[in-house]
Amino acid sequence: MKAKTLLAKLSLFFDDNIQGKKREIAALKKLLKQLKAKEKDWQEKLKSLPQGEAFTELEEKILVIHLQRKKGIERLNSLKVSLKK
């Protein structure tokens, strides 16, 4: 490896901002995966529930989790773009 490439890699490694973004991306990915699994679980559960209070409450929860995932994906994409730049 050339000295210039090595220096560039080292400066990237020591850049707190970049490392912070990488950590956030990893944490977001993990969280999004957990939320996706939870949303799927709830959707399955909803199918077996009769119309009523419990049904409406679960439906509400699914709506919330869906919106949160959407926001998470947007954040993830913006982080990825800023890292590429």
Binding site: E24, L67, Q68, R69, K71, G72
Partner: peptide, 10 residues
Amino acid sequence: HHSATQHMQL
């Protein structure tokens, strides 16, 4: 911990 939920919270 530094929570990743900050940008996902409604």
